[in-house]
Structures are given as C-alpha cells and as structure tokens.
Nucleic acid binder design. Sequence first.
RNA 1: GGCGCCGUAGCCGAGUGGCACAGGCGAGGGACUGCAAAUCCCUUUACCCGGGUUCAAUUCCCGGCGGCGCCUCCA
Length: 488
Amino acid sequence: MNLRLYNTRTRKKEPLQTREPNVLHMYVCGLTPYDSMHIGHARAFMVYDVLHRYLEHRGWRVIHVQNWTDIDDKIIQRANELGLSAKEVSEKFIAEAEEDCRNLDLLQPTITPKVTEHIPDIIKAIQILIDKGYAYARGGDVYFDVSRYESEFHDYGLLSGQTRDELIAGARVAPDEDKDDPMDFALWKAAKLNEPFWDSPWGKGRPGWHIECSVMSLKYLGAPFDLHGGATDLVFPHHENEIAQSQALTGFKPIVTCWMHAGVLTVAGEKMSKSLGNFVTLREALKRHGKNALRLLYLSTHYRSPLDFSEERAEGAKASLRRIRTALEVIQNKLTSETSSETEESKGRASELTQLVEESTRLFYEAMDDDLNTAEAIGYLFRMVGAALTFGVTVKELPSRSEKLALNLLKRRLTKLLSVLGFDVAELEEPERLEDALGEQLLNLLIEVRSQLRQRKIFDLADMVRAKLNQLGIALEDTPNGTKWKRL
RNA sequence: GGCGCCGUAGCCGAGUGGCACAGGCGAGGGACUGCAAAUCCCUUUACCCGGGUUCAAUUCCCGGCGGCGCCUCCA
C-alpha cells in the first residue's frame, strides 16, 4: 500500500510510516462531554474512521485510542447550571455521544480512556516534569516551563508554525494566574471552592487541559507513536503543548511521527462551535438526513478543507444517495431476469463494463492513497453508478451471461468500496420500510386500490392518492414492475 | 498585526506545467409515462486580479484583492 498522508509537523505529504509494519498506533483527540455532540465533531471523527477502515481493508491492524476529557472548566460550569455533579454531566453526555457515534456508524475506537480514571498517572507525570525541571509549582497550581523546554528541545511552535516570541505577543494571562512566563501553561489547577478535586502533592486540584492527552497516549501507545489526530483548531495550543510535555517526559523527538488534522465544519462560512451557538447536533442531523447522507456529505469534501454545512447540501447528498440506490436496484433487476444468448454486442458491452469497473477501482485506490482523497474516490464510484444506470436503460434486450457477470462484478465492487468508506450498504440495498408495520400495510393497501383505479382509468382519484401521499412525505413511482414507494 | 489554508461552471466540489473526461446537486429541452416520478440523452462549461518564470500557467514564483481557520475555550 502506498498511502501518503499530509503531516502537519513537516507540512508535506509523506508515506505513512509506522513503528511496526502494517500496524498503526493512532491517538485521536476526543470530546469534552459537557453538551451534545454536534456535526462538526462528527466530521473530525469520521476522518479517522475512514483512515481506520481503509487501513483494515488493506490488511492493517489499527490501534485507535480516543479520549474523553471528562473533567474540565466547562463541565464544572455546566454541572452548576444543571444542578448536577461534574461526573453526572460527563457521564450523561458521554452516553449520548457514544450512541450518536454508533448511529453514524463510526467504528468504536480500540480504547477510550477517561481523564478521571488516570489521575494517578497524570500526577506521576507532572511529578516527573517537576523533577526534570520542566515544571514548577505555584500555590496549588503547577505550570509547564516553556522557556526551559525550548532551551532543550528548540521546537516549541513548530507545529503551529510560530516562534515562541510570536506566541508570547498574543498570549494572555488570567488575573489569578501566577506564571513565570505568559507562555507557560497549567499542568495542574488548584481547586476553587465547590469544585471537584483530587488530592495531589500540590494540594487538592485537577489536571490542566493538555496533560491528559500526553499521559494517556503514551500509556496506551508507547513512545514514539505513529499518528496523532484531531481538528485543526487543536493545533495551537493543545497539540503544541502536548508535544512539549510528551517530549520533555520521554526525551523522544519527535514523539509523534505524523500529525493529521481535520478541517473544521462551518455554517454560512463561520466555524460551527458551541460558543457561537450556530451548531446542529449530530442527533438532529441524523434524524433529518440519515447516516449515509451525512457520510456522503462529509466525504465529498477533502478532509483538510473546511466544509460548509447547509441543508441544501444535505439534501443534495440525499439525492446523490438515491442515485446509488437506484443503480443497485437496476442491477438487481438485470441479474434476476432471464439470460439471453451471447452476441457480439453483448460481449462488447460486457467487456466495456468490466473495463470501466476495473479502471474505476484502480483510480479509487489511487485517490485514497493520495492523502485520503475521498472526494475524488467517490467520483469514481459514481462512474460505476452512472454506467449501471445507463446500461439499465439503453440495453433493452435481456442480459447475456457475460453481461450478468460484468454487472455482478460492478455491484460487488461498488458495494465493497462503499463499505470501505463506511457506508451502510445494506441500508442502500434494502427496500425502504416504515417503522410502523400497520402503517406500511395501510400504505400497501392504498397503493393496491390506486392500481385498481388506474386500471379502470379513474386517473383523477389515482392522482389524488398520489398527491396526498406526497404531502405526507411518500413518493409513488409507477414502474413496469408495479408501483413503488419511497420516502421523500 | 503574526502563522496557515483557500479562491475552478448557477451551487457544491476533485484535479492538472500542454485543447479543463472529475463527480454530485440544480436549471432548460427531448425520450419514456394516462399524467407524473424515476431513469436515459442533449444543453447549461468555469480556473479572483496584476506581474514574473516558461516554448507553454488555471497549475510554479511575487504582489494585490477577497474568504476562512488558528494566535483565547473549541473537534
């Protein structure tokens, strides 16, 4: 496999290099569970989901660690608002997010560690940093000493492309902080009144924001490890600080071979975020558009580009999906029909079709290998879809044996590659169902009555049934094989 | 202000030093249909601006203009 990925650390596309052949050790920054997961989070996670799936498809093993930052200022604030404990808040939103991720068909990461279950590890790491001279205690807080780190490692700011001096210019110090240098950041924060806390050598408190990722990634993946992911908005300060901590702790440089960052999701050109309040929850989007349409929407833009979300685009994705669905249906019809005898024309069509499938497949893999260019890769899948649809209409005679073989190849290849990208092919192939069995029976009854009306040429009534069902969100299509319904 | 990314048809969105095969959505026309829908065929056809490098630039370089992200919590 020749997968090349863009590495934020080196600003280049590079062949994927791993510690062990055909095994990827990957850490992905997860959520701070203080509110519902939104479709921006899902976009980032889907990038690593596709990487994970693609590598497994190519015979790799993926060790995928994704954390929960389940103690943090925002969780404490939310707990106060809701009158719950911090633990109750994080547990509630973790459970919700896990359900949402399942519903989006995101692969379960191999390990999903929580900060609150690693406090002793974190305290130990902070102590090591203090002992090595990379951190200092002030009151009940502990800070990481960036200038000391920089004097040893000379790479602070490398990831975000800024020098330490440039960063200082923009840095701010909160009024109650007592740091030696504005660049220094908290490893341990003393507990204020009524805040949850753990005992530590520096008094009651909780971990700072970045240390948990250093500790948990090193604990589960070892050092150095292969790939670290997250969205671009984490590059600074989170990942920059994580590198400093982890390298100071272990002495390895670089601590992570490849840094991979997903572009953020925007709405009307502005980043979707909880603070801006312009977010759509994943739950809501799944309900409205379904997992396959959302996945198609996400994967039709390259993962590093910003993705501007809109209802129109989501509807467009749904329409594209219907095209795939129709193509699979067309193929199925051809495959189950009778076989005609072979002719020169049928042989020609079959070989043309086979050639198209093989070429599209080759190009699909090339696109995926080129920094997971799913947008391009999906284009090749639609070439197969288009070929199937055209074949379905332009070839009037029954398919020959070789044509059936070619169609069968197309179908198997298309569904295989769709599932590599994480699409639920079963859902695409299944006839649609209503969740309510009685409702579905009633619908079928209506369709039957309407067919009778059409046979007796009472078209105004037949059309009324169709129009009214349309208003209820059910579309009817009269085909040579009877009337079919689908949801709008 | 600093760092970075981006500016391709009506919209979204790949891609490329050599006539732009992406792909999807939408719109218009035709075929099909009792009428529709779906599908097929046709049409709608574009590289922000100005310099430079080059035989050749949308693609590389420089400078604008515009947008976005980060520099502060953020996936």
